[in-house]
């Protein structure tokens, strides 16, 4: 998809060429393998991916094999199948020695040059994989009919949010004031997103798609400082 703005190349007989090859650059995730045979690798990987399922779903991934200089060659075909089972999409490798290179090619992976690692580096099993962009801060009242969206980060509002207003964030939503409108956190599917507000009176609250409307909110929490999080498929309300 996408419009081709360059004029099409013509064939020698004057008809338009059916394709065009040109260079493009992409930023991709790398999965650095330190020990592909480690027991529990896939369990730990699955746990890491579950921190941001929407982000990792079908993500193209390049295997960084530069640490595997001395290790025995693993069954990379099987390894990649298991990666696909976790809905990752291994497309290539980098940093391989001669032994690993052949195995990787046999597994259908393409050769990638050893690029510079970005600041965030390869996927670390423990912490959140990519630095989130800093939070969006809104200091003016969010009025009825207005919509504020914080893509890939948190949303902080230090003013009242009116009925009929909408707050959307891929991360957390904090309202240091009265929340009367809608708050939709974890918009991209992150179930760890939370909603915090100084005074709950919302039209609707939602985390990663699980929502409750005003009528369904526990009366004990209305008008109070509240933290809302997702526990499985239920929204849990706790006093702040």
């Amino acid at each position: 998809m996408g419009t081709n703005t360059r004029p099409q190349q013509a064939d020698t007989n004057g008809a338009l060429a059916p394709f065009q090859i040109r260079g493009s650059s992409f930023t991709l995730l790398t999965l650095k393998l330190n020990d592909p045979d480690a027991p529990g690798l896939f369990e730990r990987l699955e746990a890491t991916l579950s921190l941001a399922p929407g982000f990792y779903r079908s993500a193209p991934i390049v295997l960084d094999l530069s640490e595997l200089v001395r290790a025995r060659v693993t069954d990379l075909v099987g390894f990649c199948d298991r990666l696909r089972g976790l809905s990752l999409s291994p497309i290539g490798f980098q940093g391989a020695t001669a032994e690993w290179e052949q195995a990787a090619l046999d597994a259908g992976l393409s050769v990638f040059p050893s690029g510079r690692a970005t600041e965030a580096g390869a996927v670390k099993p423990r912490s959140a994989p990519l630095k989130r962009p800093s939070a969006r801060l809104v200091g003016e009242p969010v009025r009825s009919g207005q919509q504020v969206y914080a893509p890939q980060g948190d949303l902080i509002v230090t003013a009242p949010v009116s009925r009929g207003a909408e707050l959307l964030a891929d991360g957390h939503i904090h309202v240091y004031g009265v929340l009367r409108g809608r708050a939709v956190a974890g918009l991209a599917g992150d179930p760890t997103a939370r909603i915090f507000c100084k005074k709950l009176d919302a039209d609707l609250v939602s985390i990663a798609g699980v929502y409750l409307v005003s009528e369904q909110l526990d009366q004990d929490f209305i008008g109070k400082p509240v933290q809302i999080r997702l526990d499985g498929d239920k929204l849990v309300f706790e006093p702040l």
Partner: peptide
């Protein structure tokens, strides 16, 4: 009140 709130939002934007 709700309509006025909407209008104030439009005025400020």
């Amino acid at each position: 009140v709700r309509d006025s709130d909407r209008m104030i939002g439009l005025l400020t934007s």
